[in-house]
């Protein structure tokens, strides 16, 4: 089955990503497919470069786990509207808004909300992981 997923919770302050990552890893083990993970609302912060989780609170870093999914051709798509207002910008948006630096991790892309709808349209199931 094809799945589309959306993450609404921020890294390390919400369980959304841990739940989603374990769900995706289980899906792949069962031969299901995930074309795109969409990061919406506070979830846009997952694409922010330079996160350093507190070692006293978190056993694993999230970003290497997302990067591992990217190597399996799962698109990591940050909602552009959610991203730019939180300072999560790629080089194009950095130039457009004359910002000091691009902040989007290289494994992630900024996309419009239409890409969320397109992923849902093309999927058998849509699952969201709330904040």
């Amino acid at each position: 089955m094809k799945y589309a997923l959306a993450i609404h919770g921020a890294p390390y302050s919400s369980q959304a990503a841990e739940h989603a990552l374990e769900f995706i890893e289980a899906l792949l083990l069962c031969d299901h497919s995930v074309e795109r993970v969409f990061f919406f609302h506070e979830g846009a912060y997952h694409g922010l470069n330079g996160q350093v989780p507190a070692q006293t609170q978190h056993v694993t870093d999230l970003q290497p786990r997302w990067a591992a999914l990217r190597t399996q051709n799962i698109e990591l798509a940050v909602c552009i509207a959610s991203g730019i207002k939180r300072g999560v910008v790629d080089a194009v948006e950095q130039q457009r808004y004359d910002l000091p630096s691009a902040t989007l991790m290289s494994d992630f892309t900024l996309v419009g909300l239409g890409q969320l709808i397109a992923a849902i349209e093309g999927a058998d199931r849509y699952i969201e992981f709330p904040a």
Binding site: F40, H41, G112, L113, G114, I117, A118
Partner: peptide, 15 residues
């Protein structure tokens, strides 16, 4: 607001 933005996009895609 963000939910409504997404709803408008879904409608624009003929949903």
């Amino acid at each position: 607001f963000e939910q409504l933005e997404a709803a408008m996009v879904a409608a624009a895609f003929d949903g």
